[in-house]
Amino acid sequence: MNWYNTLIKDDRWKMYVNGIEETIIISLGAIAFGILLGVIVALIKYVNKKYDRFKIGAKVCDLYLTVFRGTPVYVQLLIMYLVVLVAFPTRTTAIVTFGINSGAYVAEIIRGGLESVDDGQLEAGASLGLTRTQVMLFIILPQGFRRALPALFNEFIALIKETSIVGTIGVVDITKVAERIIARTYEPFTPYLVTAIIYLVIVIVLTQLLKLLEKKLAKGDKNG
């Protein structure tokens, strides 16, 4: 183990700081993109099921879910990088790829949340004269989203770890930093250990947040 060569010499710890920044930017970007996409897809599928609308939209959504959940994200990343988003900065490519990929999982998680909301809620909303859009927006979505939150959080934790492959397309994230340092020190153990510890700390912090969240949610969510 050589902590000095890994972290101190030539201010290499700064490379890790930049790597953390990169990983966080890509993860947050992908999460935001994934939620947006996931909520839209989940709503289309839910409305299709409950009101028999958006038939074609629902078919398109199914295709999207099948393709992006049925192929490895690594392959998706390469195809995006080499074929689809050639002209874009690699960071953008990473955010878009992970966003689309995560969106497929988020969609299913949120759809599960929406469908777990009792049909009586739809009926109560309708009986008050609220429009379908209002019922979705103010009654079903808040409840469904709330129930989906713990699973969503787990999906995000998984996503952060999955982004460790973005080095393949030249993004210098926490994992890629280790490779670069090894290229100079010829000692693989310490740099990878540091990388592992950083991921672990991020995940532990998020898991604790999740626990807090679950406690808070447990209060407001029983049958009305």
Partner: peptide, 20 residues
């Protein structure tokens, strides 16, 4: 349809209050 429903209040066996 929503305007008609505004004129008709409904109370359900299972209450169906909005829990959130």
């Amino acid at each position: 349809i929503n305007i008609h429903r505004q004129k008709i209040g409904m109370v359900f066996q299972q209450f169906n209050l909005f829990p959130h």
